[in-house]
Every structure is written in C-alpha cells, then in structure tokens.
Design a protein around this nucleic acid. Structure first.
Lengths: 183, 183
DNA sequence: ATTTAGTACGAACGATCGTGCTATTTGGCA
DNA sequence: TGCCAAATAGCACGATCGTTCGTACTAAAT
C-alpha cells in the first residue's frame, strides 16, 4: 500500500504474501471495500504509534508542536514502510471517488487536523505564538509543507527535502510570532 | 484521468468512449505504456495553453509570476476537467514506480519548476523581490501550497481553499521582500 | 453428545485487463 | 480505375480481478 497505493493491495496478492488462500483471506473481510477500510485504519494505528504517542511526552505548546511535526514529516520511512505515506497517497487516489473508504479517510484527516489545531492553539495560549494567529491557516499551510515534502522525497528524490521543509516550517512559525528559543 | 488517475484510463474504456474498437485504438499506441506517456503529454499541452501562454502576456517580474501562479492553482477546473490536476495525481500514483512514464513526468516537473525558477529570478532582478532571496526555496514552497490547495479542493472540499492558498502565497512573497504594490 | 461458530480451503464464476494475430475497410496517389 | 499503405475491426489468448459456493476441520457452546 505504501509503495503502490490502495489499489495495488489486491486480495490475490495479499493472499499470496500471507500464505493464505484467496477465499480464506476474503472471508475475513467480506468485501474489498472493508479490506481497504481496514488498511486505512491500520495506517492510522501505525502513524499514531510513531508520531502522536512519542510527541505527547514532550512539554505542551510550541515544543510539542515541533515534536509532532518533526515526527510527522517523513514518518513512513522511519516506520519501516518501503514507500510513501499511505494516507497522503490515498487522498490523491480517492479524491474524486465517493464511498465508505473515502469517508473513513476524510474522518481520519479531520482527526489529524484537529490534533494539529489543538496543539497550535495551545502554543498560542502559552504565549509561544502570537495571540491573533489564524490557527486554521497554520494547519492548512502545514499540510502544504507536508505534501510538498512528500512529493519532494518520493517523486523528485530531492536530497534537500528535509532542509526545505524545515526552512518552510520555521518561516511559517516565525510569521506567527514564534518564540525563536523554541525553534 | 483527471477523475480516476492514470490507471483508470484503460484501453477498453477509452475505446468505448471514442467509439473505436479496442484493437483499433491499441494499434495507435502499441502499448499501454506509450498511451500513458501520451496522456501525460496531452496534460502538459492543456496546462501550457491554459496557464503559461496567457501568463506570458503579462509584464515580466512579480506581475507575471502572480499571473502564472494565479492561473496555476485550480487550473484543472477552469480547463474543463472534471477531476483534479492529472499531473499532481500521477506524481503520487507513480512516485515509487520506475519506468518511462515516471521519467516523462519527472521531466515535465523539471520543466515546470524551471519556469517558476526563471520567473522568480526575473522578479528578483527587477527588484520586485529581495536580492538575497533563495529562489529554489520559493519554488519548493510554491509546490507545497499548490499541493495543499489541490487536496483542500478535491479531497477535503474546502470552500476556503482559494483564500487559504492566496494567504499562504502572499506571506511567502512578503517574506522575500515582495513589493506590496504588486500583490 | 450434539449443535454452532469460526477459520480455512479449492474450484469456479463473469469481468476486465493488456496484447497479439488476421482480416477488412479506407483514403490518397499512380 | 487500380493499388498500396494506413487505419480500423474481429477474435482470441492468458492473467488477474472481486466474489460466491460447497466443504472440510476445529473449538466452544449447548
């Protein structure tokens, strides 16, 4: 899924990879659609373990936000996946397809954006960011930087992707009056 | 292709849509791979006509850069496509697949980035942007904003996507000392 | 002891995929 | 008008897709 997207995860291939028979494996999911939902949910689980949980150990405010974003960018490689972020790829794969799979992914995206929103907001409350900061705009631009980083890494094979993303991130937070001692 | 990605454009479906027979249509391309390359090239042609050519009528420097980017964001809808940007989707679809299709897309991406680079550079020469601007970084972040806008529009169905992108764009150019009269 | 539920299997289904071969039709030029 | 090459059609192929079916075997519940 990380390498070829949702549609590349075929019941036949998955059966071969697991050593199960096609029909035996199919019985566990009842439908291709349910398998795809399960795949998305598993992606979320892995992401939470690798990104959210460690970041929550860091002090609230800008430090935690930086930890969160730092672990977010490029997480799929650190999680041992051999391709890119399955969720990002799925967004482009499903953006025009209606159905429960897309719905589940939208819900997951909402959840993630809410997490970002909360942490940007907390940083503001703690005075790490300017008071009149547009939280939603920050979250919006963070997504842009993430997607840019993703395509730079995986499509363009840009060696400087990490630096570029970091530069963009710092500029974004500075613009919002970030306390430079936390960057 | 705009709606379902490269892999959704199947020879059978295309034959049915054009009224040709499968084999008759196939004879024109000799292979699925060649068809995909042709699709990517056609995408580039449409994009050039809708984005680049009109923008070249605008005075050099920041005005032309703004015209370019203004026509870039959300161009697929204005070009009459019923889905998102085929090139952006293809990047996420092919990011880990080797082959001539990917190669062609990379070349196209290089071409586009070179165009952006040239126009950011020209704006700098004309004093519309600060002299010590990191041109490559601007281009990099423009891509991020574009991808963010794309996913906001098509996946999240965000009504404010245009505003958000515009805000991010202006902030990026301001950071580079853009003459505010041109924004 | 008997029913039930869960798990897995092999075989087959109708579609559709890309791709060959072989005709047939077509359109421009001698 | 006749001819040749290009364009298109017809048909078939092996693969793979998601899905269904009937059937074992096992463990739990009755």
């Amino acid at each position: 899924m990380s390498r070829g997207g949702l549609s590349s995860v075929t019941i036949g291939r998955l059966a071969e990879a697991t050593g199960l028979s096609k029909s035996g494996l199919f019985a566990h999911f009842q439908s291709r659609e349910a398998l795809e939902v399960a795949l998305i949910e598993e992606t979320a689980r892995i992401a939470r373990r690798h990104i959210v949980e460690p970041a929550m150990q860091v002090p609230e405010g800008l430090p935690r936000l930086m930890a969160l974003v730092g672990r977010w960018f490029g997480w799929s490689a650190r999680a041992g996946l051999c391709g890119g972020c399955p969720a990002a790829a799925a967004m482009f794969e499903l953006d025009d397809m209606a159905g429960v799979v897309r719905d589940r992914l939208v819900a997951l995206d909402d959840e993630w954006r809410e997490l970002l929103r909360a942490n940007v907001g907390r940083a503001m409350e703690l005075g790490h960011l300017r008071g009149e900061t547009d939280v939603e705009q920050i979250v919006w631009e963070l997504w842009g930087i993430y997607l840019g980083h993703h395509s730079a890494m995986r499509f363009r094979r840009d060696r400087q992707a990490d630096e570029r993303a970091q530069t963009a991130l710092i500029a974004l937070l500075r613009r919002s009056g970030a306390d430079p001692s936390h960057l």
